[in-house]
Structures are given as C-alpha cells and as structure tokens.
Design a protein around this nucleic acid. Structure first.
Length: 186
DNA sequence: CACGCGATTCGCT
DNA sequence: GCGAATCGCGTGT
C-alpha cells in the first residue's frame, strides 16, 4: 500500500522513488498488476512542460487540488495518460510511461491488439489501454479504490534523461527509468 | 463559436 | 520512417 503522504514531496523526488512500484487495477473479478519501469515528473506552474504552467483550467484543476490524486487526460484524441499529482502546493504530477506485466497477463493481451510481448505496456497510452484506465478515475485517491499504486521492489539502478514528446521544458532531466528493462519505451 | 494541435500509437509505403 | 487516426482543451474572435 502506498500512503498518500508518499506523494507530498515534489514530483521530481517522488518519480524515481516510484520505479519498481506496482500499478494495481481491479476489474470485476480480475486483478492486473504491472511494475513501473519508466516515469516522468512534471513540476506544475513553474514547469513549461506542465499542463499547469499557464494556470488553472478546467482540465488541469486537479493538479491544483492536492497530492496523491489520479489525473487522467486524453491525448491526441485517442490515448489516456495516467498521472498522479505530487507535491504540497506545487501543482506537480508524475506520468507513468511504462510498466512490466506482473499479474493478469491474459487480461492485458485481451485489452491490447498487438502481438509483440514487449509492445503490450511499453508506452503511456499502451499501459492505460492494457489496464483499462480512463478519465473516470479522475480525482480518485491513488492509495485506495480499483486503481492504486502499491509498494514494490527496491530498484538498484535508476537512469534519467530529458522528457519525451513535449515541445517545451525538454532540457531538464525529469524522465526516470530502469536501465535495461525491455518495457522502457523508445 | 471556430480553429489548431498535443506528455501517442500503429500500420504501411 | 511517415502519416493518419481522432477529439477535447485552450486560445482568440
């Protein structure tokens, strides 16, 4: 169980700590689990790459709420992005970019329409499809409910780089991943 | 109220 | 490697 207080530190400190943790998704009878192997930090209103940079809007208002809340939004009209808000008053969030399947592999394969094993959950839009995550989770506490994060194994080595896919704020190294893991994107 | 585009993915040229 | 898919948000008229 990941306590809400875990997310009160700023996103750039929370993100690397979450590597190795488990996303736990309960769908009716089944439970699907995945180990977080890649994650990015967005630092809120101080961060040009963040949705919160230009102030509070209808979409990002959750980031101005409190830490430890699920924030999901639709990207390119097709893909859901799974975030958790982080930091006291910092309007930050972490974006889960890739997981390694741990439990419920059959369900994951059923939800994803690809053959290659390593393409099942190696991207932010892929893992939300695999884990049936959409905007209905918005505002829920990540430490309870049908979608939560649980403490997993301790990761021995963490690498970092610039964030992927954004146009502003690329220079800062706010992407963290487990080197060598096959599910890390690109 | 119209318009441009994005924290992406997949299939095909 | 390139481009289409697809839609809600944010901005400006």
């Amino acid at each position: 169980m990941m306590e809400k207080e875990f997310f009160e530190e700023s996103a750039d400190r929370v993100a690397p700590e979450l590597l190795g943790s488990l996303i736990v998704r309960k769908t009716g009878q089944e439970t699907v689990k995945g180990k977080i192997v890649e994650i990015e930090a967005y630092l809120g209103k101080e961060d040009p790459g963040s949705h919160a940079f230009n102030g509070k809007t209808d979409r990002n208002k959750l980031m101005f709420d409190t830490y430890g809340k699920i924030y999901v939004y639709l990207c390119y009209g097709l893909h859901h992005m799974f975030n958790v808000t982080a930091g006291i008053e910092s309007t930050g969030a972490v974006l889960v970019r890739a997981v390694e399947p741990v439990e419920g592999l059959e369900k994951i394969k059923e939800n994803r329409n690809v053959q290659d094993f390593y393409s099942l959950t190696d991207g932010p839009g892929k893992l939300t499809e695999a884990f049936e995550i959409d905007r209905s989770f918005n505002g829920e506490n990540v430490s309870e409910g049908d979608l939560r994060i649980e403490k997993g194994e301790t990761v021995e080595e963490v690498k970092k780089s610039g964030r992927i896919g954004i146009s502003r704020g690329k220079e800062r190294e706010l992407r963290f991943y487990i080197p060598g893991n096959r599910f890390v994107s690109s």
